[in-house]
């Protein structure tokens, strides 16, 4: 029964009451932790959606400056450094592509971890866990290096709005990725303690979904930053 059907029930009517008395409780058939994770996904998605809207708003406000800059033969960077904050597209740094690839590989490793956990192969679980953890950490370090590279090239957050947006998006995304490392670390600790692989199945599946979700979020944000 859909939500509209549920909302039109008349709980005081006897025929409805007889039906309701058979109800076992919960609303959805998916396990509770999965529902919690889906709610969290919705909150995170709204967060990044609002950031993206702010980005496009800024982009529109700066559209005229951008066109004026594009019409000049002078370097955009010179222009923005000489006349204050001016719209300037995100520089095409190769390291950003590498970081994206690392995050993608991290997601694949998590998928491998999930498969190994389902099969109950403790050795594979340990290997995939280490690979996924290392790749994710490498991604975070890579993002920090990108920020430093941008500063080294003269693209400061204060002078180039696109870089400012990149920093804020990378920071918030990175914090979410870092947050994911905490339960993944817990998986490692439990494995080290000798817990059965089967007992780790739920938390590994949740972590894997979280990794895939953050990968999709990053791909969308990265595309937005690159294409505008």
């Amino acid at each position: 029964m859909g939500i509209l059907g549920k909302l039109s029930e008349k709980p005081w009517v006897k025929s409805q009451s007889d039906v309701d008395n058979l109800h076992e409780g919960g609303t959805f058939t998916i396990p509770t932790p999965w529902l919690g994770l889906n709610v969290l996904f919705a909150v995170i998605a709204v967060l990044f959606l609002l950031l993206s809207i702010a980005y496009y708003h800024h982009r529109i406000v700066h559209a005229s400056e951008y066109q004026a800059a594009a019409a000049q033969s002078a370097s955009f960077l010179d222009l923005c450094l000489s006349s204050g904050p001016t719209w300037f597209g995100l520089p095409k740094l190769w390291l950003l592509w590498v970081n994206t690839a690392i995050l993608f590989l991290g997601s694949i490793a998590m998928q491998g971890l999930q498969s190994a956990t389902r099969r109950g192969q403790a050795d594979s679980v340990r290997d995939y866990l280490l690979i996924a953890g290392a790749l994710t950490t490498a991604f975070l370090v890579g993002q920090i290096v990108v920020a430093r590279q941008l500063a080294g090239l003269g693209f400061f957050a204060a002078t180039t709005p696109a870089v400012a947006f990149f920093l804020i998006i990378a920071l918030l995304h990175g914090l979410h990725v870092f947050g994911g490392l905490l339960p993944l670390g817990r998986v490692g600790a439990r494995l080290w303690r000798g817990d059965k692989v089967a007992d780790l199945r739920l938390i590994v599946e949740l972590c894997t979904a979280y990794w895939h979700f953050l990968l999709v979020i990053w791909l969308l944000l990265f595309a937005m930053l690159l294409l505008t």
């Binding site: 549920k6 909302l7 029930e9 008349k10 709980p11 309701d20 008395n21 058979l22 109800h23 076992e24 409780g25 919960g26 609303t27 959805f28 509770t32 529902l35 919690g36 709610v39």
Partner: peptide, 15 residues
């Protein structure tokens, strides 16, 4: 999630 999933037996949303 508690409201959606942890209700006792017989507790429909409209109750």
């Amino acid at each position: 999630v508690t409201v959606l999933q942890a209700r006792c037996r017989g507790m429909t949303l409209m109750r």
